Computed example of a mutant assay.
Amino acid sequence: MSIAVAVVDATEPGNVGTIARSMKNFGFSELLLVDPPTLDPDGEAYGFAGQAREDVLPNAREIEFEDLAANYHTVGCTAVTNEDSTKHTRYPFKTPTEIADSLAGVEADTAIVFGRERVGLTNDELAQLDEICSIPASAEYPVLNLGQAATIVLYELRSLTLDTTQHPDERHERADEAAIEGLHDEFADFLAAIGHPAEKRSKAQRLWRRFVGRAHPTGREARTLRGFFRKATLRATDDSSEDD
Rank of each mutant, 00 (worst) to 15 (best):
G147F: 06
D169G: 03
L157C: 08
A188Y: 03
E54P: 01
A193T: 13
E181N: 14
F28D: 06
R220K: 12
E242M: 10
P37Q: 02
N15P: 06
R21I: 13
N59K: 15
P13T: 02
A10T: 06
T89W: 03
A215C: 10
V106P: 01
A20N: 04
V119G: 08
A70D: 13
L68K: 12
I180H: 11
L183V: 06
T89V: 15
D67E: 15
Y91N: 14
T74V: 03
K203C: 02
V56F: 06
A100I: 03
V8T: 13
T18K: 05
M23Q: 11
A222L: 04
K203R: 13
T89N: 07
D189F: 01
D169N: 10
A192P: 06
G120M: 08
Q128H: 04
H73G: 08
V113Y: 03
L126V: 05
L39P: 07
G43K: 07
G14I: 13
S159I: 08
L68F: 07
V5Y: 14
A188E: 15
F28S: 09
G115D: 11
R223Y: 09
L129Y: 04
S102M: 12
A111F: 08
D35S: 13
C133D: 08
A69K: 02
P142I: 00
R174H: 15
A175R: 09
